[in-house]
Design a protein around this nucleic acid. Structure first.
Length: 977
RNA sequence: GCCCCCGUAGCCCAAUCGGCAGAGGCAGGCGACUUAAACUCGCCACAGUGUGGGUUCGAGUCCCACCGGGGGCACCA
């Protein structure tokens, strides 16, 4: 925890002094007004949003219009508190929510806290403070900071994932997932989750055969459960996982960077086989990809998810090994190699094969000695294939993922074995090489160097033949592979010819043939792996699972929820040397020895059970929090189905034509960094809940918007130390000084270590929350990143001061508007402004809305004299979503008793927006030469006539008839001489 | 290496379907107010749209190439 107001602030609004008029809108006055109205809103429950049914339904009958569910990605409450970058999205959603509420919508908007997580735990490890203590203090601090900004949040709906009343349902949902399996046949092959009980019934009835000799009834409970575990949507598996000794925990694939380090802390991550909880997210891979098309999301996020799921279609093909070697060591069968390929059309061009070094098949196929025809480069210098393979495997095992990436040079050794190409009987030498990964496909490939760059490189390095089976275009560099489309060549046997076919047709033809002959089948592959769900940490949700004497995982019955964390002496997972790949995780809960075993009566008398000692990852709570906001006090369900249907249910009119609306939150705003973590996990959980009938929406977030980041300049002195950014001055363009000395400017994040943090607290103190909100929205469109410049905020303060003076006399504090009507010009401007501001707000174009408001204020200010109420009131109302406190204050001073939170919002008179005359620019030879003013409803012919009659144009044409005249009604006239 | 997004005034940003490059703000200059300064108010100036081609009557906007910035992916067969 740090002090938040220690930041020095050089540029601030000038303080009020004796010379300042007594009722000027200064920072001091703004602060007084803001605190007062925040108190008012809280006392009156102004932003309590009614549900259609249930305990929060008070006031629902008075709701005038449609609902709108607006959501921010909830924050992790860190000890450092907020800086000015954090609230950007929250202000954006607040402005929209306030605007919609003023126009009659029932707006649900609140904020909660993603409060389980590593920092509080690491702080606990260092200081012994319970993570709950730290977390609750941080949440309190965040609440205060956010409250000060005047958000129209429903405070009753704010939850924290660490509340037992919240994680009780996180655990409950986990159990629903545990008690479900994915029936891929269901729903016309789309597949859906179904209760495990239905699966057990199928086994028991014999409708589904057991994978053993015995019938279901003959199997023991433990044996049955072992079979069932292979179906559950969450299950324990011994599998290669990402073990991060530096953090003392395992991590999901999504939490590991491409460099093979942990996303948090940047520690090395190692692949280890460990027993861990997994979530069968891969069962949903198709739906997760396909349903992206139904979402109103940024294309970049969609493409990141598509990429992560990595669906590809191709074929699995069987290559028989050349049967000259004795393979009767195990089964007597001649082994074969299964490969996955997306290019079965290139089968005729396969010239060798590669197994991943870790592929278990390697042991069986290694030849006793180098066969005839073995080239020197294939042997790795070893005397026998076995030696070469052993040496290569050893070397490969020593390479980290990072090492593998650093060099793309192709390495490998020959196994001494040959496989037979099913399409032409060619003998293909089988290699092992680390460019083939065990974790994808079958861990084996057919290599087609002519149509694959990697295979090309390997073939060149190992002197292997290259056969082109797709005709490259004439301009193709013949020293490279050709991976594009083209007619097949060299691709025929006695039975089938692909020659002349394009890639797609050739694929279809050969797959049919392979299937016909029993050599292969069509196959879909995914990069997505199951989600590793357990963590060796303390500060997370405990699994509601116990184990019986046979190690069978038993779900805790509902009445045992929430299962709370035990008190422990020491919060740290066992700590390890970050480089120690062979260490083994030990969860902190293992220290709670009494808690770890428990005697329960789960139906067959009291028995002793062992508890699960891992906890859930931080993503668990954020997988469903948007549902809890809807019905936060419900003790019987995570959310009432009627409430969910009202706020998130699918609606025909919410999707573009031809798209079946999946439902979900109407607008979800947050940073792009969650593109494949939170946003993929929560979609998965939501789909399970949908399949099980708990929610009516198929997707959690119908529309997603990524806000930009507020970045900041940082300055280093000649020693390289960061100096306080707020005290740096620009002496000349590009020349920056701190205390007279030159400093060097950098651009990037805002952070304590860069000495450039500006807090919302400081902005409120020096300008007021309304100015701060206004400035953040005026800086540019919400989705664009921009640099923070504290001094620029003065412009927003000036606007609010002018608005204030429109209503209030700075000397007396009295309202000064007149009841005289506005002059026609002002009235027209007003209605054009209303029209534009409405559109801009609805599209979240706040910067342009602000520009229009400033124009109107400047217009009436410039005119001098008292401003008509007819203009002043709409101005105040239109400013309200952006700067709600001053707007409430002025609204009251204009004589209104009620809050403006529910409107009215001004409406533009269509008659007044209409223009009756249009000034057309006239271009001659593409250059603007003159202007002519014509009635707005004039037809093209009369516009042309007027333009050609213009003296300047007559002069330019000098009597010649124009070759062509282009008239764009409402726009311009172009004359081609 | 591949893919995506963005380059408009000193700075942050506007500019419907391709139709007069400027809405707004900051900074700057001049002036009013002030004993003075700050605040406030008024007025003013400032770019031809990263570069080079192309399409068009007309290009900031569309197409191609390149340069600069940001992001994603990176042996996924």
């Amino acid at each position: 925890m740090t002090g938040i107001s220690e930041t020095a602030t050089a540029a601030t609004a000038a303080p009020a002094d004796d010379a300042t008029p007594p009722f000027r809108y200064t920072a001091e006055l703004a602060n007084e007004i803001e605190l007062r109205w925040q108190g008012y809103w809280e006392r009156h429950g102004t932003f309590h949003t009614p549900n259609p049914v249930g305990p929060l339904s008070d006031g629902y009958d008075a709701v005038p219009g449609e609902k709108a569910y607006i959501l921010d990605m909830f924050p992790y409450p860190s000890g450092a508190g907020l800086h000015v970058g954090h609230p950007l999205g929250y202000i954006g959603t607040d402005v929209l929510g306030r605007f919609l509420r003023m126009t009659g919508r029932n707006v649900l908007h609140t904020v909660g806290y993603d409060a389980f997580g590593l920092p509080a735990e690491q702080y606990a490890v260092r200081t012994g403070t319970h993570p709950r203590t730290t977390t609750e203090a941080n949440v309190e601090h965040y609440r205060k900071q956010l409250r000060r900004l005047g958000f129209a949040h429903d405070p009753r709906r704010s939850v924290a994932t660490t509340d037992p009343e919240f994680f009780r349902w996180t655990q409950w949902i986990f159990l629903q997932v545990f008690n479900s399996w994915f029936d891929a046949e269901a729903n016309g092959g789309v597949g859906k989750a179904r209760p495990i009980a239905e699966l057990e019934a199928e086994f028991a009835a014999g409708a589904r055969p057991t994978p053993s000799e015995k019938t279901w009834g003959e199997l023991t409970f433990a044996e049955q459960q072992k079979i069932i575990a292979g179906y559950r949507l969450t299950y324990i598996d011994e599998a290669p996982v990402n073990w991060c000794p530096g953090l003392g925990t395992v991590l999901s694939n999504e939490e590991v960077t491409a460099e093979g380090t942990s996303e948090i802390g940047n520690f090395p991550v190692f692949r280890r086989n460990l027993r861990q909880w997994m979530m069968r997210i891969t069962a949903y891979a198709d739906r997760l990809v396909d349903d992206l098309d139904r979402l109103d999301w940024p294309e970049s996020v969609k493409s990141m998810q598509r990429n992560w799921i990595g669906r590809s279609t191709g074929a699995q093909v069987t290559f028989r090994l050349d049967g000259t070697k004795e393979y009767d060591d195990v089964s007597g069968d001649t082994p074969s190699i299964e490969v996955y390929t997306t290019r079965p059309d290139t089968l005729f061009g396969a010239t060798y094969m590669v197994l991943a070094p870790e592929n278990p098949l390697v042991n069986r196929i290694v030849a006793a000695s180098w066969p005839n025809g073995t080239k020197d480069v294939w042997t790795g210098g070893a005397a026998t294939p076995a030696e070469a393979v052993a040496a290569y495997r050893f070397a490969a095992s020593r390479k980290s993922d990072l090492d593998r990436q650093e060099s793309r040079d192709k390495t490998g050794v020959f196994t001494g074995a040959y496989a037979i190409n099913p399409v032409n009987g060619a003998r293909l030498p089988v290699f092992i090489a680390d460019y083939v990964l065990m974790g994808y496909g079958t861990g084996a490939i057919m290599a087609v160097p002519a149509q694959d760059e990697r295979d090309w490189d390997f073939a060149k390095a190992f002197d292997l033949p290259i056969i082109r089976t797709v005709q490259p275009p004439d301009d193709h560099d013949l020293d490279t592979a050709f991976t594009g489309d083209g007619p097949a060549i060299n691709s025929a046997n006695d039975d089938i010819s692909l020659n002349g076919l394009g890639v797609a047709d050739a694929k279809a033809r050969i797959i049919d043939w392979l299937q016909d002959k029993g050599f292969g089948t069509p196959q879909v592959q995914y990069k997505l792996r199951d989600w590793l769900f357990s963590r060796q940490r303390y500060w997370g949700e405990p699994f509601p699972i116990v184990y019986d004497e046979n190690d069978v995982a038993i779900p805790l019955p509902d009445e045992y929820l929430p299962l709370e964390l035990p008190e422990v002496e020491n919060y740290s997972p066992q700590s390890f040397d970050p480089q120690d790949a062979d260490s083994t995780p030990v969860p902190p809960l293992a220290r709670a020895t009494e808690w770890g075993t428990v005697t329960l009566d789960l139906g067959d008398g009291p028995k002793t059970y062992r508890r699960e000692l891992n906890v859930m990852p931080q993503w668990a709570g954020s997988c469903w929090y948007e549902l809890r906001y809807l019905d936060p006090t419900n003790e019987n369900a995570f959310c009432d189905p009627d409430v969910e249907r009202y706020w998130m249910g699918p609606r025909d009119d919410a999707a573009p034509a031809g798209v079946k609306d999946p439902g979900g939150v109407d607008l979800y705003v947050g940073g792009v960094e969650h593109a494949v973590l939170h946003l993929l996990y929560s979609r998965f959980w939501h789909k399970v809940l949908y399949d099980l009938g708990y929610v009516s929406s198929e997707e959690p977030f119908r529309r997603l918007f990524n806000q930009g980041y507020i970045q900041a300049y940082a300055y280093t002195d000649e020693r390289g130390f960061y100096v306080p950014a707020e005290e740096v001055t620009e002496e000349a363009p590009g020349e920056f000084r701190y205390q007279g000395k030159k400093v060097h400017r950098e651009y990037g994040k805002m952070g304590k270590s860069l000495n450039n943090v500006v807090t919302p607290d400081a902005m409120c103190e020096n300008y007021g929350a309304d100015t701060f909100r206004m400035y953040e929205m005026a800086m540019g469109p919400l989705d664009v990143s921009r640099p923070w410049q504290t001094k620029d905020a003065i412009g927003s303060l000036r606007y609010l001061q002018r608005l204030w003076r429109v209503v209030v006399d700075e000397q007396t504090g009295d309202a000064v508007v007149t009841d005289e009507p506005a002059d026609p010009e002002t009235r027209k401007l007003l209605h054009r402004t209303i029209d534009g501001v409405r559109t801009d707000f609805a599209n979240m174009n706040y910067n342009t809305a602000i520009a229009k408001l400033i124009m109107l204020v400047n217009h009436v200010t410039k005119a001098g004299g008292r401003v008509s109420r007819e203009v002043a009131e709409p101005l105040v109302l239109m400013t309200a979503p952006l700067a709600p406190h001053i707007a409430e204050e002025l609204w009251q001073r204009l004589g209104h008793d009620a809050s403006l939170a529910r409107g009215p919002f001004p409406e533009a008179d269509p008659v007044l927006i209409k223009v009756d005359e249009v000034e057309y620019p006239i271009q001659v030879a593409g250059k603007v030469r003159s202007h002519v003013t014509v009635a707005a409803d004039a037809d093209a012919a009369s516009i042309e006539q007027a333009a050609l009659a213009d003296p300047r144009i007559v002069e330019l044409l000098a009597g010649a008839a124009p070759r062509k005249v282009v008239v764009v009604p409402g726009r311009m006239v172009s004359v081609v001489p």
